[in-house]
Simulated scan of single mutants.
Amino acid sequence: MAARTLAHGMGAFFKECEHPQNRWSKCLHPYTIRYCSSSGRQTEETGFSTQDLAISRLTEIYNEKRGRPSSQARAERIQKYGSMRFQEYATEWIAGQRHLAPASLRHLESLMEHHILPALGSRRMNSFDHKVVDDFIRTMEQAGAGMATQANAFDKLRAILLDAHQLGLYAESPLTGVKPPQYDPSRAVIPTLRQLHSLREAGDDAFKLIVDLMSGCGLRNGEAAAVNLNNIVADDVYRIKEQVIMSTGRYGPLKHRRAWQYRDVPLPSSVRDTIEGYAEKHGSIDGYLLRRTTDPTQPYPHWEMANQWRRLKAAGTADIPDGMVLYGLRHFFASNCLSHGVPITDVADWMGHRNLDVTFKIYRHLMPGSIGQAAKVLDMALVA
Rank of each mutant, 00 (worst) to 15 (best):
G328S: 14
Y300I: 02
Q243A: 11
V342R: 07
E276H: 02
L219K: 07
L312A: 13
A318L: 10
D273H: 10
T248G: 03
K313C: 00
H282C: 13
E276I: 15
V244Y: 12
I344C: 04
E223Q: 11
E304T: 07
P266H: 15
L290F: 13
D295P: 00
S284V: 13
M246G: 10
T274H: 03
A259V: 14
I285L: 15
L219W: 01
S270G: 00
Y251T: 10
G252C: 11
A234W: 00
S247V: 14
I210S: 03
T297Y: 08
G323F: 01
Y327T: 07
A334M: 10
D319W: 01
G341A: 02
Y262P: 00
D264V: 10
Y288A: 08
T248M: 13
G222S: 06
K241L: 02
A206H: 05
K255E: 11
N221D: 04
D322T: 08
L254V: 09
D322Y: 08
N307Y: 15
Y300N: 03
D236S: 11
R257W: 04
F207S: 01
A226Q: 11
R258M: 09
R272D: 04
R272A: 06
A314M: 07
M351D: 09
N307A: 05
R311D: 09
R310S: 03
W350P: 05
E242H: 10
I344K: 02
D322H: 12
N307L: 06
E304I: 04
R257N: 03
A334Q: 09
H353L: 06
R292F: 00
I275Q: 01
Y278Q: 04
R250I: 01
Y251W: 14
P321I: 02
H331T: 10
I210K: 03
R291A: 12
S247C: 11
G328I: 11
P321Q: 04
P321N: 07
A206L: 01
E304K: 03
P268L: 05
R291Y: 01
T248H: 08
L326G: 04
L213V: 04
G283R: 12
T317S: 13
K313G: 00
E276G: 03
A318R: 08
N228Q: 15
G249I: 15
D349S: 14
A279S: 15
M351L: 14
D236R: 12
D319K: 09
M305Y: 05
D349E: 15
F332Q: 08
P321Y: 00
R354N: 13
H340W: 14
D295S: 15
K313P: 00
Q308A: 00
M351G: 05
D273F: 07
V265Q: 03
I344S: 09
R330G: 14
L290K: 00
V265N: 08
V233S: 07
C337G: 06
L329T: 09
P268V: 03
G341V: 02
R250S: 03
G341H: 06
H282K: 15
N336K: 12
L326S: 06
T294Q: 05
S335R: 07
S339M: 15
S335I: 11
D236T: 09
F333I: 10
E242V: 10
L267C: 04
D295H: 02
P296K: 12
R258L: 11
I210R: 07
D319C: 09
E276L: 10
L267W: 13
G352T: 09
R310H: 05
R263F: 12
G252V: 10
Q308T: 07
A226C: 11
